[in-house]
Nucleic acid binder design. Sequence first.
DNA 1: TCCTAATTAGCACGGTTGTATTAAAACGAA
DNA 2: TTCGTTTTAATACAACCGTGCTAATTAGGA
Lengths: 194, 194
Amino acid sequence: MPKIVNHDERKNTIAEAMWRVILDKGMEGATVRNIAEEAGLSLGALRYYFKTQDDLLVYAMDLVQERATKRIEAVLQQPLSPKELVVAVILEIVPVNANTKIEMEVWFAFIAYVKHRSDTLDVPDDQILEMTQRLLTFLQEQGLLKSTCQLEMEIERLYGLIDGLAIHAILNPERLDPEHVQKTIIYHIDSICC
Amino acid sequence: MPKIVNHDERKNTIAEAMWRVILDKGMEGATVRNIAEEAGLSLGALRYYFKTQDDLLVYAMDLVQERATKRIEAVLQQPLSPKELVVAVILEIVPVNANTKIEMEVWFAFIAYVKHRSDTLDVPDDQILEMTQRLLTFLQEQGLLKSTCQLEMEIERLYGLIDGLAIHAILNPERLDPEHVQKTIIYHIDSICC
DNA sequence: TCCTAATTAGCACGGTTGTATTAAAACGAA
DNA sequence: TTCGTTTTAATACAACCGTGCTAATTAGGA
């Protein structure tokens, strides 16, 4: 009898160990040996759950998106005003707490690594652009977007701002702390809303 | 007699070969062997010019900044209106042509790599923030910044937008082509100027 | 209890990495 | 030419990489 439940839980544990290794040592340090050690497993044990390193990589990337999506869905359930809702969703993406920080940093490391692989890897799409489109369309439908704003341009601008702030918060956290990130997001949303 | 001139020219050639390798294969592929092959040199020859790989890394990073700085200084000599000048300078940073593309991409690869090194490397500062501060202060001094704009916030926003657009242009060039980047930059500058 | 499948540990293999070393080649000045 | 320095080539080495393989261990159902 396979212990399906424990099996999947263990895979998540390993994927999270991989996150921590990437956070600490970068993609270059994300070797199967380092990941196994971080997860408290032997090489053979890790290999039992993930046949190859690429399998683990794809699984760990999927898990990042899954976690973020779940948190965003929880935010969407909350009774907030349109503008508050938009800000709240963005703050679940951009690195302002332990969750968002590790997810965003690991995500960037993944994307940068996968880009330079000759063989294609089944990497999930970036959901941030899609989310940005939805948020701004929502604001416009609510009549909150200033008439001077062009939707397409605002999507590109907010999308860029989100990832730009994320990069800066990751690479220079002592200069751009979570409060500054939040303040800048709110400042920008205010600037495009009536 | 040391052939100083050729020596330094050769070092630049090697550094540029490293850029191309990073552009093509990423930081993981930037091995001394790959770089030597790209430069058309043997391992021993490369090692003659750069005692260690880190020496080459630091030299190649410095060269990125040097090239970008020179181009920006050239732009500053041109007789342009304040707003045109600001846009022109930003377009020398963000990936809109072969030069800016390779420099920005290599720069990000460098920064991401260096971040995860226990030992400190003599990596040059990011000049983009400094440049952004100057540009916006200049706009304000010229009385072109809207009165509703807060300088500190605008610096953070433009800085984020520049690197965010750069990331997107690098990671997804078929979606965000140079024209879109330029259009978005101009749109943003227009939105904060009278 | 036993038995079978799930799980783990450990090692070996071929390949790649950065770097050190050493000898050969190229070249300029006398 | 001849000498001395600069430059190149080639190899060796230790460390690390991903992965395949096999034996030991564990655990749950009959």
